[in-house]
């Protein structure tokens, strides 16, 4: 009784004098904790940004002077590093990414659409989904070993652009499938139901409504995946990347150099000038990466404007 009384009195007192009072207990303390949390988050963000800024500063500081049109149009040179360029590596990387995109995008989106829209939701599809999620976390060197056995040796492709691209496709497929599935999952159920209600088949629903609505998310996933592929060195080293290549591949069966491998090779040379060349090659790699991202952002914006809702 005593207790109830006290509480109700307090309640009444508070509400009488000041309507906010009941929310006030220890307000200063709560606000203080909130501020500490905000400062903590800002610090953590700051560390991330600072590390990135330091890294970029170092790379630009070391490499910027070597960036020129010559750097893009000349082959690497060990004897005259001053005149070196990344032509073979740049073309190799563009070849690799193009073929990887051609292979992995249709397969990845197709698998995601099947799993999300068509496959029956049962144990098997859940099992497949879990496995794909796990595959996304497998270290890239493991895909390199797989690529060496499957493509270089078993399929007899040799150490070609095609073997490298197929290996990279395997590496990024899980990422594309997961991102596309998430994007499809984000399309409201009502869209599908409305289409069905109007008599559309599942294929018509998927083609005309679900996929276009999910496309921005799918594109983001693809670009993240291709960005990963472009920076990978380990699987390419595993399938037998070369250290000196001074030609541009003519076709998918030719040998190749890639930017990450060129950077690695230069970093390993004793003369400090090669560290500068490596930094310059990193700038080129970043530029390729950023332009890919820019295309994706533009595509996504365009798609979103087109979207009916």
């Amino acid at each position: 009784m005593m207790r109830e009384n006290t509480i109700s009195t307090e309640y009444r007192d508070a509400s009488d004098s000041n309507p906010d009072a009941m929310y006030n207990p220890r307000l200063d303390r709560r606000r203080f904790i909130g501020k500490i949390f905000a400062v903590f988050c800002a610090c953590v963000t700051g560390i991330g940004v600072a590390v990135l800024a330091a890294l970029l500063y170092r790379i630009f500081d070391e490499g910027w002077i070597y960036i020129s049109t010559n750097f893009l149009t000349k082959f690497p040179s060990m004897l005259m590093p001053e005149t070196s360029g990344v032509k073979s590596a740049l073309y190799g990387t563009l070849w690799l990414v193009s073929i990887t995109a051609i292979v992995s995008i249709p397969v990845g989106i197709g698998a995601a659409i099947y799993l999300e829209e068509f496959a029956p939701k049962n144990r098997l599809s859940r099992f497949i989904h879990t496995n794909i999620a796990n595959l996304a976390g497998v270290p890239s060197i493991v895909y390199g070993i797989l690529g060496l056995a499957m493509f270089v040796r078993w399929s007899n492709l040799g150490r070609s652009v095609l073997a490298g691209s197929l290996t990279l496709s395997l590496l990024i497929l899980p990422v594309i499938i997961i991102a596309s599935r998430e994007a499809l999952l984000g399309v409201p159920k009502t869209i599908r139901l409305a289409a069905f209600a109007l008599g559309a088949t599942r294929w018509q629903t998927v083609r005309a409504h679900v996929v276009p609505a999910a496309l921005p998310g799918i594109i983001t996933g693809i670009i993240l995946a291709l960005s990963r592929a472009i920076g990978e060195a380990a699987p390419l080293v595993m399938i037998g990347a070369l250290s000196y290549v001074a030609f541009v591949p003519d076709g998918p069966m030719d040998e190749f150099m890639a930017l990450p491998i060129q950077i690695y090779t230069w970093c390993d040379q004793p003369d400090p000038i090669f560290q500068h060349l490596a930094a310059a090659a990193i700038i080129v790699l970043l530029a390729v990466l950023l332009s890919m991202n820019a295309v994706a952002v533009a595509l996504r914006a365009w798609q979103q404007r087109k979207s009916p809702w």
């Binding site: 060990m78 004897l79 037998g240 070369l242 000196y244 001074a246 040998e255």
Partner: peptide
């Protein structure tokens, strides 16, 4: 040994641009 063959490859390709010399380091 790679620097020797890389150097040879570099100058050789200057005069025989259609011969593709590759050097790996394993």
């Amino acid at each position: 040994v790679a620097p020797i063959t890389m150097a040879a490859a570099e100058i050789f390709q200057a005069q025989q641009p259609r011969v593709r010399v590759t050097v790996g380091i394993s």
